[in-house]
């Protein structure tokens, strides 16, 4: 089982590393958010007594790039399904669960790497953090966000016949997950309704945990973030594996 999980994981990593133009291309959006919003809103945010917006925003943008990459990795199953490669894995004498675990770990690793690149870029543009032990939690949260949304993408992809529904998912799932999560604004001073909505958005806990690890400011508390992420990820992995088992090519 482990060699199989490993080789499926390795496949995702190789595909990622080989598509350099895709890596560079997908850095454009987070960079825009970071630079335009970070430096554009910075002075207003500071005047309002919110502190340094750029420092605040970095966790949100890192989480965003992980969210997008992870969801796409999950949804890539549709691709593999239409272009045949999925069949190659489905006729192999291997349990569906093993296949799903390998793919999901691969997708999550790729998304985490993408998040790391954005974080490095942020440091280059002036992001500073104190070197404390909680910083070690940052990669943990990044990987959890990646795992959660790869599993979600996989579950969604199992229910889609083709890419027709993709635009729908982009506009009604990925975008709301991102904008309502507190990635761009502090939940502490948000209207109550918005806070309540954010509570039902798993990305909120990811962003919040990452922010806690990076700049020591969190709304829900790192322990709560961690616990909720673990539970939601486990549930989504379970749903994903049930749906994946029922796929017929």
């Amino acid at each position: 089982m482990f060699p199989i999980i490993y080789i499926l994981w390795l496949r995702q990593i190789k595909r990622y590393i080989r598509s350099r133009s895709r890596i560079v291309g997908s850095l454009g959006q987070p960079l825009l958010f970071l630079l335009a919003l970070g430096f554009g809103f910075g002075p207003t945010f500071e005047k309002a007594g919110g502190g340094d917006y750029f420092q605040f925003l970095v966790s949100g943008v890192v989480a965003m790039s992980i969210l997008f990459t992870a969801m796409f990795s999950g949804i890539e199953i549709i691709w593999d399904r239409q272009f045949g490669f999925l069949k190659e894995t489905l006729v192999a004498p291997v349990s569906r669960l093993t296949i799903m675990v390998g793919r999901t770990l691969g997708g999550a690793t790729v998304a985490t790497l993408q998040g790391c690149i954005v974080l490095v870029l942020a440091v280059i543009f002036g992001f500073r953090t104190e070197l404390t032990l909680t910083l070690l939690l940052a990669p943990v949260f990044m990987f959890l966000i990646a795992l959660l949304f790869t599993a979600l993408g996989t579950a969604v992809a199992c229910k889609l016949e083709d890419m027709q529904g993709f635009q729908l998912i982009m506009n009604f799932l990925i975008m709301p997950l991102f904008f309502l999560s507190g990635a761009l604004f502090p939940l502490d001073s948000a209207p109550v309704a918005l806070i309540w909505i954010a509570r039902f958005d798993p990305l909120s806990y990811g962003v919040d945990g990452l922010r806690g690890a990076l700049i020591g400011a969190s709304h829900f508390g790192i322990a709560a973030d961690f616990g909720i992420l673990i539970v939601v990820t486990a549930v989504l992995l379970w749903i994903g594996s049930v749906l994946f088992k029922s796929i017929e090519a």
Binding site: R11, F83, G84, V91
Partner: peptide, 15 residues
């Protein structure tokens, strides 16, 4: 027990 060559190609074209 079987090997199969599908009607549509099923290689991973990035490997």
């Amino acid at each position: 027990s079987f090997g199969i060559v599908f009607q549509d190609p099923s290689l991973d074209d990035e490997l």
